[in-house]
């Protein structure tokens, strides 16, 4: 960090705010928890028709995973760190690392980056979801090092629309079953798409963790049934090819 990254009058730290802008540029991800499950859902973008889709949800340990919005490379560095910490916890204590603990550890790392000379904040926001000894959890992580435990959350481009949906259905989540929760996540995701876009098996990712269910990533045809069940009244897709483009 350099002097010109501060505003002397307002006390704002510009670099952190720029980093938070990077999160807003990333495609949207949402997360929801019930009493039994934690679900992550994400829109994948592909840079061009010929390229593959980006990774949006990364399973870290068997009990949890993360969804990212922002710089994928920064997320990779963070997820590698989280993977190492998770394995270390299992090795030294034979214990699945508590989600609050791992969230705190990356938060401390991110905060250091906002304060130290020559460093820059991570340009990525994360949703950390899964189950530990205290049940299902969802945590939100911001480049500033701010973390919060959430019931439901959305970050990334146009995520306000998703959050509005989540706020409207807030009371329903706690007692939702597994399938119900996935539907909520997918509907929230759909809200943040522009009118002419659809969720397809190609551009959607879903990660599910639950009590007595390891955190698993679902992509491609595994999603077809959920998408059909969630958006019954939409017109039959033509091979899913056309609707692949997402917001840009």
């Amino acid at each position: 960090m350099f002097r010109n990254n501060y505003d002397n009058d307002s006390g704002r730290i510009f670099q952190v705010e720029y980093a938070q802008e990077a999160v807003k540029q990333g495609s949207v991800v949402v997360g929801v928890v019930s009493k039994t499950h934690a679900v992550l859902a994400a829109i994948k973008r592909n840079a061009e028709e010929l390229s593959s889709y980006q990774k949006k949800i990364i399973p870290i340990d068997s009990h949890y995973g993360i969804a990212l919005a922002g710089l994928a490379s920064d997320a990779r560095v963070l997820s590698n760190f989280m993977k190492q910490q998770s394995l270390a916890s299992r090795l030294t204590y034979d214990r699945a690392i508590p989600l609050s603990e791992i969230t705190l550890r990356i938060a401390d790392r991110a905060q250091t980056n906002t304060q130290q000379y020559g460093k820059r904040p991570y340009g990525v926001g994360l949703l950390i979801a899964g189950v530990d000894a205290k049940g299902p959890h969802l945590f939100e992580f911001q480049p500033s090092g701010v973390t919060q435990e959430m019931i439901a959350c959305g970050i990334g481009a146009r995520s306000q629309m998703a959050r509005t949906y989540l706020e409207r259905h807030l009371d329903e989540f706690a007692n939702s079953g597994r399938e119900e929760l996935i539907k909520h996540a997918l509907r929230a995701l759909k809200e943040s798409l522009s009118q002419d876009k659809e969720l397809t098996v190609d551009n959607t990712s879903v990660g599910i963790g639950g009590i007595s269910e390891n955190f698993t990533l679902f992509e491609g045809q595994d999603l077809a049934e959920w998408l059909d069940a969630t958006f019954e009244n939409r017109e039959a897709q033509d091979e899913g090819g056309e609707a692949m483009e997402t917001d840009s």
Partner: peptide
């Protein structure tokens, strides 16, 4: 001190 109320058990 760590926020979790998840004490280490005998196995840990």
């Amino acid at each position: 001190y760590s926020s979790t109320e998840n004490p280490l058990n005998a196995k840990n």
